[in-house]
Design a protein around this nucleic acid. Structure first.
Length: 449
RNA sequence: GUGGGCGUAGCUCAGCUGGUAGAGCAUCGCGUUGUGGUCGCGAGGGUCGCGGGUUCAAGUCCCGUCGCUCACCCCA
């Protein structure tokens, strides 16, 4: 019996890709993973769920975005669900470190690529289920500041290998605005940061108005805006902040730390790191350096990679494990590159060769050819039916498979292989044929405009 | 969570003041009895999101509901 027709609809915020898009995403994943491993980050995966209380209070407003889970058939105890899906990879990692501290060697560096879930309202490039690619370093008691410079530089290396175009990693240190605000007499640091953070979106006038509304004086609001307006690719931001004439020990601390990160950037990857004193975002647990990454020319996409330093996320009460990490929003990045820049994979299947079938009686010969090709690392598939060759070629064409193999097509009864893009067809032997390296795996197609 | 927009073929959409549902693209077939892409001809495919109401008659008007989407919030 055919079941009654039922409407299937996508679920908002839970994107699913077509094969070509997924191949593109896998290319990104492979590249990112390779770079992470080149830098010695150990692979790690944590469970999808954490006790809700461990998730709560870690991400500010993220609290209300946590998905709780329970068994549908479980007894209704009337209690709140005890498990929730993680909303990032840092909080679970911190827990993992505590749990396995005795078995890990510090400083411990790991990478982690997993789905995360946030119950926010979906929008272009904002999902409820998405993949993050995260690197972190944690140490016991204290964490050397040079790691704060290393994180964004690893990301920069990964991005340079990917077709993301020009990008900018913006760096700030929360102690800078914190010390600055305290220095001018504003005690609501978090609230002030939140308002100032909207600067790029709502403009200086509205930010000033909201600051005053929140209790700041006109002069304090003006000072906040002056600080937030400072950005530089070199160390000149330090003097610019000093010129504002505000004194506070926390401010000094922040400026020193930020200067160290920017200095490392100018030395190792000129042009990729920018000190931007308006950057304040990140989850609540960040205590110092924070990062955000924008694709140049598409700043409206928001950050595609961010993170920061956290000093007390992992603590068992006696020992704390400070860390610093940064996370690529892979789903957002790939989705935006696909929909806004037309990026795609060169084909919708890994197969580089379609082995034609002359007739069903000789399918075994085609299967043998495929086996020989696979043995030498050439991804291929055998035609599904012994249809007319025109149809078999079209089968390959529709999928972007570049080569069609014709068993027994040669004058001497040997095989031939056809490059269906050029139409060239030549004698070939499955035991020795060399697939052009560029065609072996699906590539990335970047439309020119 | 708050507010706006939109739900018609696989996709993008048209469908006026209510009158028995259309196009392009895609798919499949044939032209082309074993080498694709072009072209020509043809075919299949729709409970008009769902439920209720008004009406002789609803894709069209009204109410509700669900979904998608955009913005706010927040964030990758």
């Amino acid at each position: 019996m055919t079941p009654p027709a039922q409407k299937v609809t996508p679920i908002s915020g839970f994107p699913e890709l077509l094969p070509a898009e997924r191949l593109l995403e896998l290319h990104f994943l492979d590249t990112v993973r390779e770079v992470f491993e080149l830098h010695g980050f150990a692979p790690l995966e944590t469970r999808a769920v954490e006790p809700v209380e461990r998730l709560l209070g870690k991400g500010g407003d993220a609290d209300k975005e946590i998905y709780g889970i329970r068994r549908l058939a479980g007894e209704d105890t009337g209690r709140e669900s005890e498990l929730g899906l993680h909303f990032d990879l840092t909080v679970p990692f911190a827990r993992y470190v505590l749990e396995n501290a005795g078995k890990l060697s510090f400083p411990f560096r790991r990478y982690q690529v997993q789905k995360v879930w946030r119950g926010e309202r979906p929008q272009e490039g904002r999902f409820r289920e998405f993949t993050q690619a995260d690197i972190d370093v944690v140490d016991v008691g204290t964490l050397a500041p040079h790691f704060e410079a290393e994180m964004p530089l690893v990301i920069a290396e990964a991005f340079r290998r990917l077709p993301v175009g020009e990008f900018r990693i913006q760096v700030n240190n929360r102690k800078v605005p914190e010390g600055f605000y305290l220095g001018i007499g504003l005690t609501d640091v978090a609230g002030t940061l939140r308002v100032v953070d909207k600067l790029a979106k709502i403009g200086p006038e509205k930010v000033a108005a909201q600051l005053v509304e929140a209790g700041a004086t006109d002069e304090q609001a003006r000072q906040c805006l002056a600080l937030a307006g400072i950005r530089s690719e070199d160390l000149s931001f330090v003097d610019e902040v000093r010129a504002l004439g505000v004194e506070h020990p926390v401010l000094d601390e922040g400026l020193d730390a930020l200067a160290a990160v920017i200095r490392a950037g100018t030395e190792q990857a000129p042009g990729t790191l920018v000190a931007d004193l308006s950057i304040a975002r990140g989850l609540d647990y960040y205590t110092g350096t924070v990062y955000e990454t924008q694709v140049v020319g598409n700043e409206e996409w928001g950050s595609v990679c961010s993170g920061g330093r956290y000093d007390s996320l992992a603590s068992d009460g006696r020992t704390t494990y400070p860390g610093v990490g940064i996370s690529i929003g892979l789903s957002r990045l790939v989705h935006l590159l696909v929909t806004k820049r037309g990026l795609t994979a060169s084909r919708s299947t890994p197969a580089a060769v379609l082995v034609a079938v002359v007739d069903e009686d000789t399918r075994a010969r085609s299967v043998a050819v495929a086996a020989a090709l696979r043995a030498r690392g050439v991804p291929c598939e055998v035609a599904p039916s012994a249809a007319k060759f025109g149809k078999q070629i079209r089968y390959a064409d529709r999928r972007g498979i570049p080569f069609v193999w014709f068993p027994g097509a040669g004058d001497d009864g040997g095989d031939q292989v056809k490059d269906i893009r050029s139409g060239d067809q030549v004698d070939a032997d499955a035991a020795s044929w060399e697939c052009p390296a560029a065609d072996l795996r699906p590539g990335v197609v970047i439309p020119q405009h």
